[in-house]
Design a protein around this nucleic acid. Structure first.
Lengths: 232, 232
DNA sequence: CGCGCGGCTTGACAATGATCAAGCATCCAA
DNA sequence: TTGGATGCTTGATCATTGTCAAGCCGCGCG
């Protein structure tokens, strides 16, 4: 493993305070895997044998039930996924597949659980991580239940602009098909929402979106920091 | 505080392994409150000054944004709510109000965080609790995104029957208006879903529901343990 | 006890969003 | 380079769900 990658993982709040020796143990037990795009990593319902860390690329978490599918989230570097299932030694509630060619670190769950039992600082870091994950999903629920499709799309654009340092032109980081599914709508409806928002301060050109009137966009889509602020 | 209440709280996985002296500290710092029905306990966006424990009665967690409201969960005894906000010292993402006359224990968040820092077993119990809460919300998301309204209602009935030990007749534990909102629909649509399910193995009489053909109900609503099993 | 309010049901109608289908553009593999 | 597959857009149509409204019932309060 490259030192830059190792340091990037070390800098994650989850691992930052772990005892150095135990961090070494985790990494020594782990596997680095380079995976092409569109590869299934794990299937919902299967045991969570590894904690996954996305180093490069991106991973889609999705769920299926009786013929229906829905994307739930995209995990980008440097992030972990399936921490809760790992800690609980429980089956995973979502499947995961690579969206782009990806570099992943797979840390065996037994090692994660061992360090969790042995290192108090790790246990506390896991608390913070899980609390953050929990609040993230609660906010997604609120987004779904309290907003129309157009509002969800508009607020996604606003968040993306904020995340891009306020740039006027932002690029969608993944395809519109997945974005639609994450936002809880069909691709057709996403196209229509983009169309509708062109009267409210944006210009859409494929994966590029220019925000020409942020005020109009916010008036239409009504951002709420208790849903949209990634730090809350 | 009555000994039975104290023991019931002590028996919660969250507190079961906490050092006895520290558990005493928590309870000594706490307040018992008897609250009538329909009283707002906390408003979303406010700081989470207390961890709440429902000892009797029930509490509705709900959210509002720009004129729209939605119920998110009902908390029943013996359970806590707003643990994540307490631990993160963050604003609460949902409001809470009593559904029925309730008896609550309010434990100051500063005390919770102090014991979290001092008692490893508490930290670990919090991990398990948060992981469980996180998985619960993920399952709610899947319920919303992967099912129709009728399926959501039908699976709610199935879960209620399982929770009632398989009884043929079950009672809705709270009003249909709140149930509709938790399941992500209007009260009118809930009534219609109950009506539709009368052709699929149930008989509805006010808050009583008789399941006369569980097989037909399951065939219609397609339960999935990765959504519906409360232990997963 | 009576009245008012809220919950719930039901019907009519409207709105939102999904489905189906066709066409275009792009990307990837042979 | 070419062909096929996939993503995306757009339109027509359909289905699900929300809104509005009225009526009934039960509960709580004066």
């Amino acid at each position: 493993m490259r030192n830059a990658d190792r340091q990037a993982i070390r800098d994650l709040p989850l691992f930052a305070d772990v005892d150095e020796q135990r961090f070494d143990e985790l990494l020594n037990a782990a596997y680095v895997q380079r995976i092409p795009a569109h590869v299934d990593l794990i299937r919902e319902g299967e045991p969570a044998d590894f904690l996954y860390v996305v180093i490069e690329g991106s991973v889609e978490l999705f769920s299926s039930s009786h013929g229906r599918d829905s994307s739930m989230a995209i995990v980008t570097p440097i992030s972990t996924f399936i921490l809760a299932a790992t800690i609980k030694d429980a089956p995973f509630l979502m499947s995961a597949r690579t969206v782009a060619p990806s570099k992943l670190l797979l840390i065996p769950s037994v090692n994660i659980r061992a360090v969790f039992e042995a290192d108090t600082r790790f246990a506390r870091a896991i608390v913070t991580e899980l609390a953050t994950c929990y609040r993230g999903v609660v906010k997604s629920m609120k987004n779904l239940k309290l907003r129309t499709a157009v509002e969800r799309v508009g607020n996604y654009i606003i968040r993306l602009q904020d995340k891009s340092g306020g740039a006027d032109v932002v690029e969608l980081p993944y395809g519109k098909k997945i974005l639609a599914s994450i936002l809880g709508m069909t691709p057709e409806n996403l196209s229509r929402a983009f169309g509708a928002l062109q009267s409210h301060g944006i210009v859409v050109d494929g994966p590029s979106i220019e925000i020409i009137d942020r005020t109009a966009l916010e008036a239409c889509c009504k951002p709420n920091p208790l849903i949209d602020d990634p730090r809350s």
